[in-house]
Nucleic acid binder design. Sequence first.
DNA 1: TTAGTATATGACACAATGTCAGAAACAAAG
DNA 2: CTTTGTTTCTGACATTGTGTCATATACTAA
Lengths: 235, 235
Amino acid sequence: MSETKLSQIRRRNDPTNPTPRKSERTRQAILDAALKFLWTQPFRDLTVGKLMSLAGTSRSSFYQYFQDLHDLMETLLCGLEEDIFGVAAPWLQGEGDPIPLLEETMEGLVRVCYQQGPILRAVADAAPMDERLEKAWADFLKDFDDAVTDRIEQHQAAGLIKPFDARPIAISLNRMDAYLLIHHFGRRPRGNRESVREAILRVWILTLYGDKPLAESVPGSRAKRHAKPSRSKNS
Amino acid sequence: MSETKLSQIRRRNDPTNPTPRKSERTRQAILDAALKFLWTQPFRDLTVGKLMSLAGTSRSSFYQYFQDLHDLMETLLCGLEEDIFGVAAPWLQGEGDPIPLLEETMEGLVRVCYQQGPILRAVADAAPMDERLEKAWADFLKDFDDAVTDRIEQHQAAGLIKPFDARPIAISLNRMDAYLLIHHFGRRPRGNRESVREAILRVWILTLYGDKPLAESVPGSRAKRHAKPSRSKNS
DNA sequence: TTAGTATATGACACAATGTCAGAAACAAAG
DNA sequence: CTTTGTTTCTGACATTGTGTCATATACTAA
């Protein structure tokens, strides 16, 4: 008996298995349904009932896969965190002239958040309602604060950035990013990718490398922009 | 009959009335109870039942005074907004050397939030759960973004601040303030007033007036602080 | 004291959660 | 194809919290 059972378990857990277990398909259906819902409605309107009717199974089966809605959000957050740290690698870890690296990183950040904005928004919305999720969200932010702080300090040691207390600046920049990305990409209709990217990039460069001569090689930035920039008071 | 009725109403609405109406006392008791609760517990644990048992009346009477918990939070937010705009006046509207004005404003901001931190935190926590409150909170933030943006642009016109796009910087600074104030003063035990004040002030001055020689007149800052500042990596 | 209004209360209907025992679907072995 | 053991799904239930309403109680001014 034990051999048989073990082989079943082995097969079942094999990720290359061509026919994934039913449970995996259902689980994915729930995640897809959640995403679909959050593209058009805020997290506060999501209930287990609505979600599962979207996913096409009964309400109670939700609890086979997730403890509750916040647990589900935590799952989505984990995926997002990987993606974001992936695209942030150039500036956080790359070598060479930091400004092109920063451009690449922000380009990627905007791309990822443009695609997954609702997750960002929904997690931020849901976090205060659940202790665990609140912790996960705080850690997520803190990981970025730490990474950015370290990078600033490295660049300061290398003379690329003026010596100031790095952490508050890192926090400031990260909170602005979070606000802008959630605000513009958190729900449909989404804001303009290019303008968000440019706004974020401009502030980072100005804040960190502002005393250096600005490279005009920013891809996508219009040719001349030396006059007082158009006041972007659109909230 | 109409005279009698009117005089009652007049008396009742007179704020200088030595014996305020019962309803006013109850209303205040509810607000006090809410504040007391929020000093020690997060908004997510607040229910109408708990609140009213703290306030000393029955659960259902809550609804005579507020539509729901979010409506109550909105009331608390309004009070806070007044206080904050009050203390922010020096830098936002004052005349003269901007750095002492900024110091005064940040001193006041920290003082007010030290005293009312839980309101700030609870409103921020509760906002995503209610459309109206979300709007009120967004407006609250936007009012600040607007005011700071205007002030930066005025100082830019006067040559006190270098010419850059003011709004993203204003947003960045405001979001950092919100984060730090909520993080350190949003619940007990609260963080250190002085260190928060210094951190915020440093970033604002560095960001806005960074190219100017720094006045060492910051009240409360220790005499010499020219070496690399102690890395404040305490989250 | 009383009349009339203001305030407070308990009972109710409703919505959503999370659990559980049993039903149904599935997949491997005979 | 059937059997058998396991996985997955489901409806019913108990629980918690909300907001409303008719009615009871407590005020206040005359």
